[in-house]
């Protein structure tokens, strides 16, 4: 029984590792300019965690195999180095490992989250609400008009609560149901929630940020590959959470300009 158990542990450990090594299921290809440190950090961590996983499971299996055999007369032995040796090993090996992961991870995080957007980044506002995203482009004047929550009426397609009769800056704002951005252009995404906690997750773009009702945040990113991607909500927001999504189209600058013109005409 012990031997079968030991073999089972090793088989499970190896079977578990195969899809990881083969990348059967893996992060989708990166289409952002900031994603490389994340992907590298992921591979580093996978290598270290994977080795720890295999080493620990295999050691466990070997000891189960070896020490479950009756060995009459043989005294109990202690692991060479004893508990202190293991504690020191844990501090040295795992300690260095986690400090290194922590430091490099913090650097990757800081490069994304602690850098300001460049001044010429293109501002786009995204509003999350049960259960859809809507986007707002500032129009030719480059200014977003103020939001009036009391004017929000999805029934009239006033998703943001704009007052186009009184607010000059709102008059040329362009509200869309899908997000289009020009390729290789930095986007400054202003995040606003009209009701609950939501999230903005685009796996390919290596972007993930929650919306906080009452607290408008912003993130910035640059997409470097033309294509159509999905923006999904990852913060449980009610019965339609699974279907809260929008499409992100990364286009050439020309395609984007004509797309924006078409959208402006539909307002």
């Amino acid at each position: 029984m012990a031997k079968i158990f030991a073999v089972t542990i090793i088989v499970i450990a190896i079977l578990s590792a195969i899809p990881i090594v083969r990348h059967t299921w893996w992060l989708p290809p990166d289409v952002s300019t900031h994603g490389q440190p994340i992907d590298e950090q992921m591979s580093e961590t996978m290598a270290e965690a994977g080795l720890s996983f295999l080493a620990a499971q295999i050691l466990l299996a070997i000891f189960i195999w070896k020490y479950s055999k009756p060995r009459p007369g043989e005294k109990i032995k202690n692991f060479p180095g004893g508990a202190m040796g293991l504690v020191i090993a844990a501090f040295l090996l795992v300690g260095t490992e986690v400090l290194a992961l922590g430091a490099f991870g913090a650097k990757a995080w800081a490069s994304i989250y602690l850098t300001p957007p460049s001044p010429d980044a293109m501002p786009i506002q995204v509003q999350a609400g049960q259960f859809a995203f809507y986007f707002r482009y500032p129009g030719p004047d480059g200014k977003f008009g103020p939001l009036h929550p009391d004017l929000i009426s999805e029934a009239n397609e006033n998703f943001f609560g704009l007052d186009t009769t009184h607010d000059a800056a709102s008059k040329d704002d362009i509200v869309t149901a899908e997000m289009a951005i020009p390729v290789n252009r930095e986007i400054h995404l202003l995040m606003h929630s009209k009701d609950l906690g939501h999230s903005f997750y685009v796996p390919e773009l290596r972007v993930h940020q929650d919306f906080v009702p009452g607290l408008d945040l912003s993130i910035h990113f640059t997409a470097n590959k033309i294509g159509k991607y999905e923006i999904v909500c990852t913060q449980l927001c009610g019965l339609g959470h699974y279907n809260m999504k929008a499409y992100l189209e990364v286009m050439s600058q020309e395609d984007f300009d004509s797309w924006l013109k078409r959208q402006a005409a539909l307002q």
Binding site: S16, G50, Q57, G102, T234
Partner: peptide, 23 residues
């Protein structure tokens, strides 16, 4: 505990949480 524990290395890092949070 080993199998579940090693994935903690990932979730402890904010940069990887960008990919893995709420998945």
């Amino acid at each position: 505990f080993i199998s579940g524990g090693v994935s903690g290395f990932f979730l402890a890092q904010p940069s990887l949480d960008i990919m893995l949070h709420a998945t």
